[in-house]
Design a binder for these strands. Structure first.
Lengths: 245, 245
DNA sequence: CGCTTTTTTGAAGATGGTCAATGGGTGTGG
DNA sequence: CCACACCCATTGACCATCTTCAAAAAAGCG
């Protein structure tokens, strides 16, 4: 069992039950490693996806490029995530995937995955569930953009990132490395960079969280959760991460 | 082959190839019919989904209920859609589904579906693709809310609804019945009802479209497409609907 | 026909955007 | 080692958009 197989198994176990046979099946999957420079695209809107990507290190993001040149970030992904699982059964990518900070990915051919799906339907269902959770995260983004003022909107994004990172054991204490620039935050949350900055200041002054120099610090988790009414149910994890370890 | 089976097959054929065996498998599925009054919930946030729903008639919507009482509509669905396919492999619903105007649904137990999936993986992949297209629609909603001013934002929603309806042959000429109230439009597009009304007026005056009394009228499709840079690629349909029939 | 609900319109005010200028790091080359 | 350039973050002033509030008109419905 190599690193990427271990990462994938750990990820799927966060929400699905895997039989020994499923794990054995995953261990037959081979992959290539691809390193991305900060900002580099992994796949672009319009291209035909042929491989699935698994994040091994760093952070990547999905984004749309609009006709007017604007960029809209759709979701952010960390180690264990499958940032282009959404391209599995689809002819052409309707969005792009790029690195946020330097990142390392494992790529697995779709062909191999589908063969495994035929052999182990439960494995397919686990990946399917993964794509459904992705969709649930998109739905939250819709509500976040459509219904929340800037401060809770920003808080919700960081709540989600921190909670997911914590569930995957990627945090250190109350900190998590998030190499997103202010500009990119604005392009994710539909805010101007000025507002992004003022909103981060407000959150800092409230004593709930502090995002600076690519480092997120959660100072008062319950208060932060309350600012945005964050309810992690939508992440559909089997068990909540513990806060006392 | 009954009505609901025919509807499902037609829908899946919009984006997937089905073998005769897949169609035969679908024809073994039995269902119940459920009628919903306007506004009635089909399933609520927090409940455990046990059946999948197929829209036979009318329109239904997914929505979030936020802690502050606000309602955020996430997507709208018409005949042929599977509005809670997102609940297939998930423990609890992270959103609700309600009727927009009176609607009729066919319900199919998840258990039966999964048994069919095991027998015909291609059928499973077609439904999976359906859920991935749903996710793609959510992504567009994110971009719509995050990046577009009110007029193109409204235009984009109606472009999508009309295009999807046309692809499913639910339009009559340039018209399509959309029983959404102004309040609900606002709750979908993150606008106040006053702005919704003024935006509809602006679109009416531009001569591109006219939405009034639950009836959408597309007067100038190319111009409407241009106002919001609508590109239907993200709907992943095998072939575009024809405009000249 | 009177009631409720939905749509329409106006005016005032707040939120967040735009623009422009400043400051702080970091890396490069003289 | 310093000077310069560049990128990113920060801040202020002004302004546009959209919200809120209030009220009237129109449209369904018993």
């Amino acid at each position: 069992m190599d690193r990427s197989q271990r990462t994938l198994i750990a990820k799927l176990k966060e929400h699905s039950r895997l039989a020994d046979e499923d794990i054995a099946e995953i261990c037959t999957l081979t992959h290539n490693v691809r390193e991305l420079a900060s900002g580099e695209d992994f796949i672009r809107q319009g291209e035909k996806p042929k491989v699935a990507a698994l994040v091994l290190q760093g952070m990547v993001a999905r984004y749309h490029l609009l006709a007017n040149g604007r960029r809209q970030y759709l979701s952010f992904h960390m180690a264990g995530d499958l940032p282009d699982s959404q391209g599995l059964f689809i002819e052409r990518m309707d969005h792009s995937v790029c690195a946020i900070g330097p990142a390392m990915l494992a790529t697995i051919p779709h062909k191999d995955l589908v063969l495994s799906f035929d052999r182990r339907p439960e494995f397919a269902f686990a990946i399917w569930r993964e794509t459904l959770i992705d969709a649930s995260i998109f739905r939250q983004a819709v509500s976040n953009l459509g219904s929340r003022p800037v401060i809770p909107r920003m808080a919700h994004l960081f709540c989600e990132l921190f909670y997911r990172a914590r569930a995957s054991r990627l945090t250190t204490g109350n900190s998590f490395v998030v190499p997103i620039s202010l500009t990119q935050l604005g392009e994710a949350l539909g805010m101007s960079i000025a507002t992004v900055n003022r909103t981060l200041l407000a959150l800092r002054n409230s004593g709930t969280m502090d995002f600076r120099n690519s480092l997120l610090n959660v100072n008062d988790w319950p208060a932060l959760v309350k600012t945005c009414d964050f309810d992690p149910m939508y992440l559909h994890l089997k068990r909540a991460p513990r806060w006392d370890d």
